[in-house]
């Protein structure tokens, strides 16, 4: 299918990067310690990560520190990134999540200490999923999130970004806990159905 050779020169400033471009940049960073790739990834993700870290109610200074920490980890671990297992945004999300836990929820940082461990454990035996598939997958998930009901999308976003428990989400929205859980379940079922369809 698309077999675009990505060279950093092509990436003009301001161009919207597709999932696949980001995955390739991260692979190249891991392989060649390419600083230009690192910069492009930084320019794409750092402003989004700032939103992510600020959502926990922290200040600018701490958010900037956490962005730096996240990118130091990205630099150090990029050679472990495997595009057949996760999109770059997913891989970076888990690193940022772990930085946030380290900073604000240190009591459980031991649980998330090395999430790379899971990426390595998961061996796709039946089929080798290629980069193109993962690229499409990420786009599909975005579309699927767009199709969730507003209620479902709200609880999914709150649970991923506000770092609050389902009980706290229930309090925040003045809903019974059971309602929050069932909305999450329905949302996840819907998203997983789409992922399954792609496997076939």
């Amino acid at each position: 299918m698309r077999n675009m050779q990505l060279t950093v020169g092509i990436l003009e400033k301001g161009r919207v990067l597709a999932t696949e471009d980001l995955n390739k940049l991260l692979v190249t960073l891991g392989r060649d310690r390419c600083k230009a790739c690192f910069r492009t990834l930084f320019e794409h993700f750092a402003p989004r990560l700032k939103s992510f870290f600020l959502k926990v109610g922290t200040n600018e200074e701490v958010a900037e520190e956490l962005i730096q920490e996240t990118f130091v980890q990205i630099w150090r671990k990029s050679h472990l990134y495997d595009p057949s297992k996760a999109a770059a945004s997913t891989w970076i999300f888990t690193i940022a999540r772990n930085r946030r836990i380290d900073r604000f929820r240190s009591e459980k940082s031991f649980v998330y200490r090395d999430d790379q461990y899971f990426a390595d454990m998961l061996v796709m035996e039946e089929q080798q999923i290629d980069d193109v598939y993962r690229g499409e997958l990420n786009e599909k998930i975005k579309d699927a999130i767009g199709l969730l009901s507003a209620n479902q999308a709200e609880v999914v976003r709150l649970s991923f970004f506000d770092d609050i428990s389902h009980r706290e989400i229930a309090q925040k929205l003045s809903l019974p806990l059971g309602t929050v859980k069932s909305r999450l379940r329905l949302a996840f079922k819907h998203l997983r159905t789409i992922l399954k369809e792609m496997d076939q």
């Binding site: 939103s51 130091v72 945004s89 899971f118 990420n138 999914v156 996840f188």
Partner: peptide, 27 residues
């Protein structure tokens, strides 16, 4: 992994916020 993919897709859609000057150079 599927759930983390959801996290990644959502991260990609968060609004971009201005960074302090010189962040990449410090990095």
């Amino acid at each position: 992994m599927d759930a983390q993919n959801v996290g990644g897709a959502l991260l990609d859609e968060l609004p971009e916020m201005d960074l302090n000057e010189g962040g990449f150079d410090r990095l």
